[in-house]
């Protein structure tokens, strides 16, 4: 759980940096050539299949553990006066399902269309190959307010999932230290914020620009 979770976290970071190129004001050149590189490079291809596998593994393991934990409790107290644990930490499975649903929508919209759909091709001076215009597809998609909304909900779920998950993964691996644990916790909060806000800027920026 912790290892697959941390792998997904490192993916998110790279994914965010790559996608921020969408905001570059160059008609999609940097993003489309980047996407081309990402789909052609054999190393990236291998990593991406590993990524799909780890998402599925993480989701299946997480849901199985959550189901087992629920039955190990078996009963809810009839009265609760004070919360003794953070909301995120108690709702990891629900947040995970939201993220999974989001990933499916997200893949269907961009990855599936790029792989099997009929997105127009584009050529850029200084780049010898013809590349798929994924940038154009992104720009069209984020003109719809409901797609932007779906993204914001997905990112909100991601924020809460990571707000607990980041530091939890270190604890699960037994990495706990008087001095470093508070730093890890702080880093987890900052990372969750940066990743979700960073991704959220993209649809919001494109939507506002399209108005």
């Amino acid at each position: 759980m912790s290892l697959t979770g941390l792998f997904l976290i490192s993916f998110l970071f790279v994914h965010l940096i790559g996608n921020l190129q969408l905001l570059a004001n160059d008609g999609g050149e940097s993003f489309n050539t980047y996407a081309y590189f990402m789909t052609q490079n054999p190393l990236i291809k291998t990593i991406s299949y590993g990524l799909y596998f780890f998402i599925v593994l993480h989701a299946i393991q997480g849901l199985m553990i959550a189901a087992k934990n629920r039955s190990a409790k078996g009963y809810k107290y009839s009265k609760k006066t004070k919360e003794n644990a953070s909301w995120s930490s108690k709702n990891m499975a629900m947040l995970g399902i939201l993220i999974l649903a989001f990933i499916c929508i997200h893949m269907g919209d961009f990855w599936f269309k790029m792989k099997f759909g009929s997105l127009p091709m584009k050529t850029y001076a200084g780049f010898e190959n013809e590349v798929t215009d994924l940038y154009g597809r992104v720009m069209v998609a984020f003109q719809e307010w409901y797609i932007v909304l779906i993204y914001l909900i997905g990112l909100l779920a991601l924020y809460f999932h990571l707000a607990h998950g980041f530091q939890s993964a270190f604890h699960t691996l037994g990495l706990n230290h008087k001095k470093y644990t508070p730093i890890i916790k702080g880093l987890g909060t900052v990372f969750s914020l940066v990743v979700s806000v960073g991704f959220a800027i993209i649809p919001i920026y494109i939507y506002i620009n399209s108005l």
Binding site: K68, K73, N84, A85, S86, H171, T172, L173, G174
Partner: peptide
């Protein structure tokens, strides 16, 4: 059940046992 590091135990323990012990157990289990 399995520990998911919610920390509720530490809050309610009458002897205020710290969840740092759980990290230590994870380490020795590994």
């Amino acid at each position: 059940g399995n520990c998911s590091n919610t920390g509720a135990c530490e809050v309610e323990c009458p002897k205020e046992i710290s969840i740092n012990n759980i990290a230590m157990l994870n380490r020795s289990y590994l």
